[in-house]
Amino acid sequence: MSAEFNPNIVAFLCNWCSYAGADLAGTSRVNYPSNIQIIRVMCSGRVNPLYVMNALQQGADGVLVSGCHPGDCHYMEGNFFARRRLGMLKDLMEFVGVDPKRFHMSWVSASEGHKWKEVVEKTVEDAKEAGPFEGFRRRQIDW
């Protein structure tokens, strides 16, 4: 590939920590890759695995879910549920042949602008390594 592959990353960020963290990264002028499309959700526990699958189906090369650190959840325990469910989803997707580099989860608090940068960099780098997602993307071959 001559031109560098620029992956599409869809990120589901919790309203209270990670979204604020990403915001802080912006206001503090931290440079991080622009491949990421942020979707704000109220809590990482609200992220339905179907969201992740739909993102991949509709053209994402990687998905990131980020929430508050354990114990910091605005809704007390939403991120604990998220951790359990999405951990299971990760295992499942790996088993059916989705590169584990395409799906990440992170804890980023509202004050961790720099951690956000690292998380994004890691996610983008991994997605680049995995290449364009061709798996079960909604292809238009039979349209």
């Binding site: 695995p49 699958m53 739909n54 499942l92 059916v96 079960f136 909604r138």
Partner: peptide
Amino acid sequence: SENTAFNIARAF
């Protein structure tokens, strides 16, 4: 594509 999504969702 849809079959995979269906089967993963069912299993999940």
